[in-house]
């Protein structure tokens, strides 16, 4: 009996062991050092730095979560990473200026904002294959994107011409284009699909538009350098980084109001949220660190030194993007 209990315990330990010893990694893109920092999310220690390519800015998991796609803006290529180890699996060369990246919700489209080239490149995505469908020129410095729920439209900001545009993916035609405040960057569609939120990096507010017509509905004051969004996963709230004010605002996407703001140093930019909603990880670009915020206290609990100008950030067990 004792032997059976021992065997049972050993089997139990063996079953549990991989999840205990196999630490999750966070991938942080050091845009000015052309590499990535891989951080153990349990110990908050940098495991290693790995060369990636020139100017990696943003990253996104493939729809099947098999890879994480990194865009090397100056390197003109995409790098596919294994999300569990951070290992480079393959490279897709000759992809011009991949700055911000996005997959449509129906997983049929892959969109790139070519920031330096003032255009949006739209690819058909089919089972890991990227086929260029069309290039859509926009006035100046295409920045960030969001998609309509039905995957028919991509909303793209043009940072230096102070515009946001809606592009029909199937035809690659601009449906509408409208003027905004200074330096529109991050863009997010509310869960009900009724409001398009745009962070104004050259102002201290986000501007809210109708996704149907492009008409400006409201300006909501958040903080200087309003920049990038990340949903809190509850279908109602979203975080917004204010890069000049050094704060993060929590926005109620139903009431279209700011719930609260808290301080994060060093020009907060991209974010990632733990699946259980306890911790927010933020790249602090001007101090070359990742700041970890305990969301129960809104205090910084970890400040992890990474490479220069850390930008995109990802770990697999994150909160739902809603």
């Amino acid at each position: 009996m004792a032997l059976r209990r021992l065997v049972f315990k050993l089997l139990l330990v063996a079953a549990i062991l991989p999840s205990v010893t196999h630490a999750e990694i966070a991938i942080v893109l050091n845009s000015k050092d052309d590499d990535m920092s891989l951080i153990d999310t349990t110990t908050y220690k940098v495991i290693k730095r790995v060369p990636l390519g020139k100017e990696p800015h943003h990253l996104i998991p493939t729809p099947d979560d098999r890879y994480v796609v990194v865009g090397n803006a100056a390197g003109n290529d995409l790098v596919m990473l294994d999300p569990s180890s951070g290992d480079i699996v393959k490279r897709l060369p000759r992809i011009a200026d991949p700055y911000h990246l996005g997959f449509s919700p129906d997983q049929k489209w892959f969109v790139i904002t070519a920031n330096r080239l003032d255009r949006v490149d739209i690819y058909r995505y089919d089972n890991g294959n990227f086929t260029l469908a069309g290039k859509v020129p926009l006035p100046k410095t295409t920045s960030h994107m969001a998609f309509s729920r039905d995957s028919k439209i991509a909303y793209v900001t043009a940072q230096d011409s102070n515009q946001v545009a809606a592009i029909e993916l199937a035809t690659q035609k601009i449906i509408w284009k409208t003027s905004t405040g200074k330096e529109p960057a991050g863009v997010w569609l509310t869960p009900d699909g009724q409001h398009l939120l745009v962070g104004m990096t050259g102002e201290d507010y986000i501007e809210i538009f109708s996704p149907m017509s492009g008409k400006s509905i409201k300006r909501l004051k958040t903080g200087k350098g309003a920049h990038q969004f990340l949903p809190q996963g509850d279908g109602r709230h979203a975080f917004l980084t204010n890069r000049v004010e050094n704060t993060i605002s929590i926005i109620d996407m139903q009431k279209l109001d700011v719930v609260e703001s808290f301080r994060v140093p060093g020009g907060p930019d991209c974010m990632e949220l733990r699946k259980d909603g306890t911790e927010l990880w933020v790249t602090s670009r001007w101090i070359n660190r990742v700041s970890v915020v305990d969301l129960s206290t809104k205090k910084i609990t970890q400040s992890i030194h990474v490479g220069r100008s850390p930008h995109g950030l990802y770990f697999p067990t994150h909160a739902a993007r809603q």
Binding site: K32, T141, Q159, K182, G202, K224, R243, V244, G267, S309
Partner: peptide, 22 residues
């Protein structure tokens, strides 16, 4: 953070933030 970024923000040149940081 104390000199360059506020200057860029107030003069409307935030898109040069990364270049200015370098």
């Amino acid at each position: 953070e104390n000199l360059v970024l506020p200057l860029l923000f107030h003069t409307g040149y935030m898109s040069y933030a990364e270049d200015a940081f370098s």
